[in-house]
Amino acid sequence: MIALENVAYSYGGGELLSEVSLRLAPGSFHFLTGPSGAGKSTLLKLCYAELLPTAGRVTLFDREVRSLNRDEVALLRRRIGVVHQDCQFIDHLPLATNVTLPAIVSSRTSELADLEDLLNWVGLAKLADALPPQLSGGERQRAALARAVMMSPDVVLADEPTGNLDWDMSLRLLTLLVELNKMGKTILVATHDLNLIRAAKQQVPARVLRIVKRRVQLAGADL
C-alpha cells in the first residue's frame, strides 16, 4: 500500500532521513519509534505525500508520488486517514462538521449517515456541537481519529496520538486503533511511548520500527 525505497529527506542543508526502505502491507500494524527530532513526523509526512523525498521512491497505492499532480495527491489522501500530533481542526466549525470534513470535501454524503455511530465509537456523541477549542486534549485526539476513519480509509497514520493523554486515555485510543486494524486497516503509529507499544503487542502482532541515526531499522526483542 505504502512503500518507501531508499528514501532520503534533507531540510536546511542537513539530512533528516537516509536510505529508508519500508513497506506497509495491507492489514499490518506498525509502530515507529525513536527519540524526539529523529524524523518520525517527517517519515509519516512522506507516507501521505505532504513532503516529497529528496532521494529514493515513495509509492502510494502503486503510484509514485513524484508523478502525481495535486488533484491526484488529494484523491489518494482520501484513502489515508491521518491523526496529527496537534490534531489540526478548523476552529470555527463544530466537532461534527470537522469529523465529517473528509466526506464533505469529496461530496460523499452517504458517509454522513455514519456520523452518530462514529462519534459514539470514540465517545464524543454528546460533544457533536462543541467547537474544537472547547475540547480537552484526549477529546481532540479521539475526534481526530474519528475524522481519520470517516471515509473508511485503507491506511491510518497517527503521529504521537497519545502525546498529550494520560495512560487511561492512551489505552482507550490504542484500543480504537487495534479495532481498526482488526477490521483490516493498515496502521502506522509514530510514538516514543514504549509502554504503549508493549500494551499494543499484547493485542496485535505489531512490528516496531526504530529510527536510529537517520535510518529505519527493526526494533530489538525488548520491544
Binding site: R70, D71, A74, R77, R78, V82, Q88, L101, V105
Partner: peptide, 16 residues
C-alpha cells in the same frame, strides 16, 4: 492558511 492545511489533509482538491 490553517483552514487550507486541514482541507488538504482530508483530501480536498484545489478547486474545492
Amino acid at each position: 492558511a490553517q483552514v487550507i492545511r486541514v482541507l488538504r489533509l482530508v483530501g480536498a482538491k484545489d478547486a474545492y
